[in-house]
Design a binder for these strands. Structure first.
Length: 269
DNA sequence: AGGGCAACCCGGACGC
DNA sequence: TGCGTCCGGGTTGCCC
């Protein structure tokens, strides 16, 4: 479940690997993963330098020399691996971008995709995304304004990409736990103090998760000890029956809007 | 507006 | 080992 922290981690590591590097070869093994004909994709992407990598919400944007942009969304279960043919995991590869003898492999793209756009096209494509919760401009006042007339459930609000971008199923639970709030609380029920705490928890959980490399179960490259260290640091996510790191009570598992939801019924209210 | 739900997709985990 | 079955889960779109 790649969310903001996973993608941010990927961005930081990939910048060092392929930033400024030229895409020397391409193989598309699954045409559904791209939005143009394979020939078009290859014509516009091959021999292009990756001039910059940016993360927007759960997307990774690869800016090419020619002004085109590759927009990646891993959706469920998507992941990347960077390395040589011999090092790559024994998984089905949907797309391979080569950088000389090393390659960037895209794996597990079922609903995920690597779409090609012009810069204007990207703007249009991502126009409906809400603000970046880690942006320096995203102040407490901005947040309070945003939640002013919100009425839905806390969890649903956090994962709503038009409200805030980048938070998914895992980190919405982590944030709610950190804020001492139950995920099924409704937004209009929160008092000022709880809203302030919620903001602070968002700003605490996401960078912390990024620091631990998020929730991936595969390293990005051979010797990568950073990616995927978060599970051992998680507060509630996927910890049903384990003890709460705050109060020691057993973590519960429930369901909200058909998403599995983890929480502590003792110290979240 | 917000909740509920189906559809999308198919590799991989699991069961026999 | 091998085959069949089913799950996962972000996003979109539709209904109520």
């Amino acid at each position: 479940m790649p969310e903001l922290p996973e993608m941010e981690n990927y961005k930081l590591l990939l910048q060092q690997k392929i930033g400024g590097q030229t895409i020397t070869d391409i193989s598309i093994n699954r045409e559904k993963s791209i939005n143009v004909y394979t020939e078009t994709f290859i014509r516009q992407v091959q021999n292009q330098k990756v001039v910059e990598i940016e993360r927007k919400a759960k997307h990774l944007l690869f800016y090419l020399e020619n002004g085109r942009v590759l927009v990646l969304h891993l959706m469920l279960g998507g992941l990347m691996f960077y390395g040589t043919e011999e090092e790559k995991p024994d998984r089905t590869i949907q797309i391979r971008l080569s950088f000389g003898s090393e390659n960037l492999y895209f794996i597990g793209l079922r609903l995920g995709y690597l779409h090609l756009f012009t810069q204007e096209g990207v703007k249009e494509e991502l126009a409906d995304l809400g603000p970046e919760p880690l942006n320096v401009n995203f102040s407490l006042d901005h947040f309070l304004e945003l939640v002013e007339n919100k009425r839905g459930m806390l969890k649903n609000t956090l994962v709503d990409q038009e409200f805030l971008s980048g938070i998914g199923n895992c980190y919405s639970d982590e944030i709610a736990w950190h804020a001492h709030l139950l995920p099924d609380r409704t937004m209009d029920d929160l008092d000022k103090k709880e809203k302030v705490q919620l903001y602070e928890s968002i700003r605490f959980i996401l960078p912390r998760a990024t620091q631990f490399g998020g929730y991936m179960d595969q390293p990005l490259f051979k010797g990568d000890s950073k990616t995927g260290d978060y599970p051992s640091q998680a507060y509630v996510y996927d910890r049903e029956g384990e003890s709460c790191r705050r109060c020691g009570n057993k973590i519960s598992k429930g369901e909200i809007s058909s998403r599995k939801t983890f929480y502590c019924r003792e110290c979240q209210h």
